[in-house]
């Protein structure tokens, strides 16, 4: 197989994406673990209620309100912030791929990747609210 310039850049793109995914997952898991420890510390002896569905309070269901609630060091909001970071990891991966295709002047795949990114942003910021 001839090694063309493009396949070399594809490989570098793979290395970058791999690093991004790893750092993102580790960071999100760390925030979830810290929030979880705080949560268990304060609520260890309460009784959990998951057998009937109530839905989460409004301050734990949108990106902006989760960040606000986490600032006041509410343990449930800190966990939710970690989960939000985790949901953002694939988004960041798609954004990075879009940038890489742009640098490769791959117009077709830049457009495809951008479409996926827009759909993800619509989901995270708008749909279901």
């Amino acid at each position: 197989m001839p090694t063309s310039g493009r396949s070399l850049t594809d490989k570098q793109m793979g290395v970058l994406i791999g690093a991004l995914l790893r750092v993102g997952v580790v960071a999100a898991a760390a925030v979830v673990a810290v929030g979880g420890a705080l949560f268990l510390w304060a609520n260890a002896h309460l009784t959990p209620h998951y057998s009937s569905f109530h839905g989460e309070p409004a301050n734990l269901t949108t990106a902006a309100s989760i960040v606000t609630a986490a600032r006041s060091l509410d343990s449930r909001a800190i966990i939710q912030l970690g989960l939000l970071m985790l949901i953002a990891v694939p988004l960041a991966r798609v954004a990075l791929s879009a940038a890489a295709f742009f640098l490769q002047r791959d117009r077709l795949y830049f457009t495809i990747t951008l479409a996926v990114l827009v759909l993800l942003l619509v989901s995270l910021l708008i749909l279901g609210r």
């Binding site: 898991a29 949560f39 989460e56 909001a77 989960l83 990891v89 989901s123």
Partner: peptide, 26 residues
């Protein structure tokens, strides 16, 4: 991951994602 992130946004807004339950699961 990308597929799941797409639906996770919708579920987050609907209040299906509970931090205290998701923490040990994740």
């Amino acid at each position: 991951g990308v597929t799941a992130a797409a639906s996770a946004g919708v579920y987050l807004h609907r209040g299906y994602i509970d931090p205290a339950l998701s923490m040990p699961v994740m």
